[in-house]
Structures are given as C-alpha cells and as structure tokens.
C-alpha cells in the first residue's frame, strides 16, 4: 500500500492534516485579510470578542486587533517552528551519524557534548542565549534550534549503530565503498524515517518554546507572536481573560496539528505497530 493511502487510513491523522492546513491558510491569507500592521493601534482597547464586527475577536489592552495578531502570529509560529526544526535536525543528524558510524573516541567525544546539552536545562540555556545575543526573531529561532538537537542526535546515533553492522552495509564495504558513500548513500536513507517523524516532536516543542519565551517578554517584541499576546493579556487576566485565552487556543491547535500529523506519519511508516 502506498504511504499516502496508509496515512489516510487513520482519522486522527486526517484531522491533524486539516488543522495544519487551517493554520497554513491563516498564515497565507494574513496579509490579505489584515494588510495593516497587526501591532498598530486599531481601535478602542479591551473590546470583547463578537461585540464589534470590525474586530471579530476583540482588541487587546493596547487596542490592537486580536484577530489580526492571530493570523499574523500563525506565520511567526510556523516560520520559527520550521526553521528551528531544520536547524536542530541538521545538527542532530550530523552529530548522530558521525558518532554512530565511527564509534570509538569520536562517539565518546560527541556524546559528551550531547550529554552536556541534555544536562543543562534547555530553557535555561535558551535564556542564556537570548540574554547574550538579544531577542530578534533570527536569534530566537537559531537559539531554539541550538537547544533542541540532542534528542535527534541520539535517535540518529541509535539508528546508525544498529544499521552499520547490518549486512547490507558490510556488503557495501566489501564492494569498496568509501565512508562518505556508506554514511550518506547507504545508511542515512534507512535511518531517516524515524528522524523525520521525530521532527514533528521537535517542531511542536519549538513552537511551545518560542511562545514561552514571548510570554516572558524575551522574544522579539516587534513581531505578532501568540506568546507575546498571552503575556500582554496577563495584565488584564482578572476580567478580560479572553486576551490570553484566544492566542492560547491558537497555539494548542497548531501544536496538536503538528503532533497528529507526526503520529499519522509514524503509523503509516510502521504499519506493523498500528492496530495491534
């Protein structure tokens, strides 16, 4: 059965894909629906949702349109999620591949570094990085990528460890293949599927990390981030709780979508594990 067909066998995977498409659509149409700067003053502050047709989701404590911030925030969340994930997975694969393939002292050294990154609480490292390099969207994205690679490195290493002694790799070696060819041509394509599935976890965590950072007012204040809005809403939490509640739902849906898609991919790639 084709991968696509296997994927669409699971209802939760379909829901995940639909939710993800919804968030993508929001990101894509943000400029079209809300061409103005979402952080600019738009109207009276603290309008409740559904009370004014111009501001469907109301306004926050600075009089900015919440709906506009949600739409534009989808862009930021997805952008940060995807870029940070790519950075983290690339670092993880490289380190994991070399450690797993070569073993010996290369493995020991690389795993020491990985352990160091796992021993230091990732959010504290993130705080340090932001404190040192500042909170622009670029530094925040790169910093999130840097703190979240160790797990994918471990995963890649484990795959490489089990694959490198597999007979087809040994056969490649007896044919005279060079190390680089063995790593990238023979082992990596076989090690990739679980790592790609894991990328969905990394992306979910990346989105959550950015929102937490923004909530603490340590992310880029000049972009419409959902976390920023939750942080702003905290000041008026007692009465106008919707300011914080609405962007939280947006994050929830996005992370849920990414997780469901990842799970669906996993089930499609390992049909053996499904339904037993």
């Amino acid at each position: 059965m084709s991968l696509l067909k296997l994927y669409f066998r699971s209802p939760s995977a379909i829901i995940g894909l639909l939710l993800l498409l919804l968030v993508l659509a929001m990101a894509a149409t943000a400029d079209w629906f809300y061409p103005r700067d979402p952080l600019a003053l738009a109207g009276r502050p603290l309008l409740w949702p559904f009370t004014n047709p111009r501001f469907l989701l109301g306004t926050d404590n600075s009089g900015r349109d919440i709906a506009a911030q949600i739409f534009h925030g989808a862009r930021i969340s997805l952008l940060i999620g995807v870029v940070a994930t790519v950075i983290s997975i690339m670092i993880g694969i490289t380190i994991g591949a070399f450690a797993g393939y070569y073993g010996g002292w290369v493995d020991t050294a690389l795993m020491r570094v990985t352990e160091a990154f796992q021993t230091l609480p990732n959010f504290i490292l993130l705080l340090v990085l932001v404190a040192v390099f500042g909170s622009t969207i670029t530094t925040v994205t790169v910093a999130i990528g840097i703190v979240s690679w160790p797990a994918s490195a471990r995963l890649t290493r484990a795959e490489f460890l089990s694959l490198r002694s597999r007979e087809f790799v040994q056969a490649g070696r007896t044919l005279g293949l060079k190390d680089a060819k063995l790593i990238f041509g023979e082992i990596l394509p076989n090690a990739l599927p679980p790592v790609i599935v894991y990328a969905s976890v990394v992306m979910a965590v990346a989105i959550l990390l950015e929102s937490a950072l923004a909530f603490l007012k340590l992310s880029d204040p000049n972009v419409a981030s959902w976390g920023n809005l939750i942080g702003a809403g905290r000041d008026v939490l007692r009465v106008q709780w919707y300011v914080s509640a609405i962007p939280g739902v947006a994050i929830l849906i996005t992370v849920l979508a990414v997780s469901l898609v990842g799970q669906g991919l996993n089930d499609a790639l390992n049909p053996r594990l499904k339904g037993r």
């Binding site: 909530f215 939490l237 914080s244 849906i253």
Partner: peptide, 22 residues
C-alpha cells in the same frame, strides 16, 4: 494526552488561575 501535550504550560496555568483562583 495529546491535548495536554499541545497546551502551552503557561497558558494552562493562566486558565487554571482564571477558573480556580478568580
């Protein structure tokens, strides 16, 4: 499990404050 996983912890905290404390 998925919903709890996808919820940002700080947001869950705020919502819990609204419901249980306020």
């Amino acid at each position: 499990g998925l919903v709890f996983y996808a919820m940002p912890t700080f947001w869950f905290g705020l919502m819990a404050i609204i419901v249980f404390a306020i």
